[in-house]
Each structure stands twice: as structure tokens, then as C-alpha cells.
Design a protein around this nucleic acid. Structure first.
Lengths: 219, 219
DNA sequence: GGAATTTAATGCGAAATGGTACAAAAAAGT
DNA sequence: ACTTTTTTGTACCATTTCGCATTAAATTCC
């Protein structure tokens, strides 16, 4: 068995806490951890360069089981992306909602982002949204819509952040929350890209610090 | 013949203006236009999803000729990337060197960038550097070095720009040229990503305008 | 005209790919 | 014990992939 028998590491919806007494042969895998492994692979190699054999090996499921559980490669990619987004959102939503000073909120968001982008046993994995946008997968309309959704959601979250800060007088009168939000997203994107290129964390933190300085003092 | 018999559309090094009288059977292709076609394909589909058959069809060269001219797929990818960078640099270098006000220089740079990222018959092609960073090709050390080089070169060009503007008094005393340069690069990256996701040019221009406003008024 | 040289064109081959058919296995229901 | 249901595991298939070996074509040099 490749999978560990531990609890799923992220938000798992536990519909039935106890054994539901399913009818047939029990599954030899846990869908949540299998999806996590698939996500890891897709993040490292992208859509085209990840083969079903790779996925099969990483998840410990043979191919027919993969199909039964997640559908074909495209569907598995989409489900991996959804899982990524759920995790990322879960990691950031509290900070976006918190009632802290602008600078502190930004610092915390970028710290989480760096954690996500730099993690990975075989090198930093970057941001799935950026990876997908840059991949051939973006020629698929459904996937492209997910990318746009992801980009817009981030813009909006930052937008609320800056509007809130402006109302509290943390920003000058002339500051434009929408523009600042786009810059904040742009900073997310640039560190995601640089992380993939193995730029060390220290350098990325410096870039983030400079960006925060500009955004917080923006006229 | 697939290739048009026109002159190479971009910087072609013309070592011998007249026929050099090569010995054997003459080539049926022009290396420059063939490389351009290969670049187009790689930009659209990425490294893994572009097959040698695709490249062969697009360039009008059969596979053995491709090998003879450019080496294997990886080498062809690298040469395509070099070509891309040469073209992009050529399109921007004059603006970066020009002696114009900061705002005007930025506006012109981003206009060129949008032209590059949004062009393409079958959808916007984005930025090769960003595409490559997000692809599995980045696990190749040589390719990764090229990516880092590309990122750094852009940072430096913007850096010179902002330092120059500060010396001329176009920026406040407290402005940090390095941070602004990173923000300018980040804006390049964010529009490259969004362009791939087919965000319309109008929206990208709005993002650029907002970013320029912030960067030019930066304290 | 013939040898030498360079390229084009065809096609082979071994490996990998996405996807599926089918039988064996493991559980619950009767 | 036997059927039903669900999953597993093996094997297979058609296609695509990269790379190369070999032959045919086109040109220059002698």
C-alpha cells in the first residue's frame, strides 16, 4: 500500500462519521488522500506531462480505480484544481476576514502564499492557477473559466481588503482600492512564478516587503 | 511548401548577404521562419503537449531535418525561447533606453507587452518566460537558468527606468526604485497570465493604467 | 559526365500513452 | 451457502511519441 492510513490532511467532508456499511468490496484507498497525491503530481509536472501511470503509481490506485473514482484525466485534473482552491481559500479566508491593520493582513496573506508556493518535496510547486493558465489546459473552456474565477476571486478579496483599509483611514484619499488589489494580485503572481524558478524565499520575501511598502503608502 | 518564401520576419543574422554556394543539396526551408513556427507552437501548447509531429507539420520540415537543423526537442525548445527573448528584447530596448518621461515609457512598454501576449491566431499566447516557469521544463537546470535570467533582465531594465526617473525628480524622495521595478515586472506577469485566460485587452489595459498610476505617484 | 556532399523523404521500431474489457476478490444481504 | 454488489488487478488495444536508419534527390567540385 502506498497510502498512509492516516486521516485526510485537509478539509474532508465527513457525511457519515461511522461506517456506512457499503455493499461491495471495500475501497483500498481514501479518495481524499489519493486526490492530494494527484494534485501534487499535477502541480509539479503540469497536465500534459503527468501520465496516468504516474498518477496510478502516486495514488496507489490502478487505472480502472482511478477512472471509477475520478473519471478521466481531465476530470481528475479539474477535481485536483478544485481541491487546491478549496485548500488555498481555507488557508486565507480567515486572514482576509480578520479585523487587523492593512499591513499586517497583507503580510500574513503573503506568508501563507509563500508557504503554499514553496512547499513540495521535489522543488517549489508554485500556484496551480498560474500553472494552469500557462498550460495547454487553458484551451479547455471549462478550465479557463476556473482560472478566470480564481483570478477574480483573489482580486475581489484584496479589493475588499483595501476598501476596508481606506474607510478606516489607513490609506490616503486618492488611493484606488481596485488598482491596489490588482497590484496585490500581481505580487502573488510574480512570486508564484519566481518560486517555480527556484528563487530563494529570502528574495521573494524582499519583493513582498517592497510591494507592501508601496501599496500601504500609496497616494 | 508550407513556408512562405518571404524574408525572415525578425532579426536574422545575415552573415553572407549573397549566396554562399554551399556544397550539397540546398535546404528547402529557411531556418529563421521554421524556428518562428516552432516558437508559435511551443507558446500555444507548452513543451510537453507539443509533439515532434506537430512541429514537423508546422515548420514544413520532416523530423530528420528538424534534428539536423535544431537538435532534439529540448534543444529546439531552448532555441525557440532564445528567439522569443531576442524578439521581445528588440521590441522593448529602444523604449527602455529612450529619454522620455517615466509614465510615457511605462505606457509604451506595456503596450508592446500586450501586443506580444495577445497576439496569436488561435488565442492569446502569453509570455514564454512565464509559460516556461510554470511548465515542467523548469525542472531542467539550463532552462530554469534562462527563466531566472529573463526575470532578472526585466527587473533590471525597469530598475534603471525608475532610478533614472528618480534622479530627474519624477518620483518622490522616498521612492524605492528596486521595489517599483519588481512591481512593474509583477504587472507584466499578471497581464501575461490573464491574457492566457483570455481576459479582454480592455481589462488588461485598465489594470496597467491603475498600476502605472500607483507606480508614478509612489512615495 | 561522374564523384563527393549535403539535404529530403520514407518509414521503421521500441516505448509510452489514454482508455477499457474482463475475471478474480471481498464485502453485505438473504 | 449462495447471490448481489462493488472494487481490485491483470491484461490488452489502438494510437501517439521520440528518435534513427536508410534511401532518394539535388547541388557543387573535378
Amino acid at each position: 500500500m502506498v497510502q498512509k492510513s492516516k486521516k485526510p490532511p485537509s478539509a474532508a467532508k465527513i457525511a457519515a462519521p461511522v461506517a456506512p456499511k457499503r455493499r461491495g468490496r471495500p475501497r483500498a484507498y481514501e479518495p481524499d488522500v489519493a486526490l492530494g497525491k494527484a494534485l501534487d503530481l499535477f502541480r509539479r509536472d503540469g497536465f500534459a506531462a503527468t501520465s496516468l501511470d504516474d498518477l496510478s503509481a502516486a495514488t496507489g490506485m490502478n487505472r480502472p480505480s482511478l477512472y471509477g473514482a475520478f473519471g478521466d484525466k481531465r476530470e481528475l485534473y479539474i477535481k485536483s484544481y478544485q481541491r487546491y482552491r478549496d485548500d488555498a481559500r481555507a488557508a486565507m479566508v480567515d486572514i482576509f476576514r480578520a479585523d487587523a491593520p492593512l499591513r499586517e493582513r497583507l503580510e500574513r496573506i503573503y506568508r501563507i502564499a509563500l508557504d503554499i508556493y514553496l512547499s513540495g518535496e521535489s522543488g517549489p510547486r508554485g500556484c496551480f492557477t498560474v500553472m494552469t493558465a500557462a498550460s495547454e489546459a487553458v484551451s479547455d473552456p471549462d478550465i479557463r473559466n476556473m482560472v478566470v474565477e480564481g483570478l477574480t476571486e483573489l482580486d475581489k478579496a484584496f479589493g475588499i481588503c483595501f476598501r476596508h483599509a481606506k474607510e478606516r483611514g489607513e490609506l490616503p484619499e486618492g488611493a484606488d482600492p481596485a488598482s491596489l488589489a490588482h497590484l496585490a494580485s500581481a505580487t502573488i503572481h510574480t512570486i508564484a512564478i519566481r518560486a517555480r524558478a527556484r528563487v530563494p524565499r529570502r528574495d521573494l520575501e524582499a519583493i513582498v516587503k517592497g510591494a507592501i511598502d508601496v501599496m500601504c503608502r500609496a497616494k
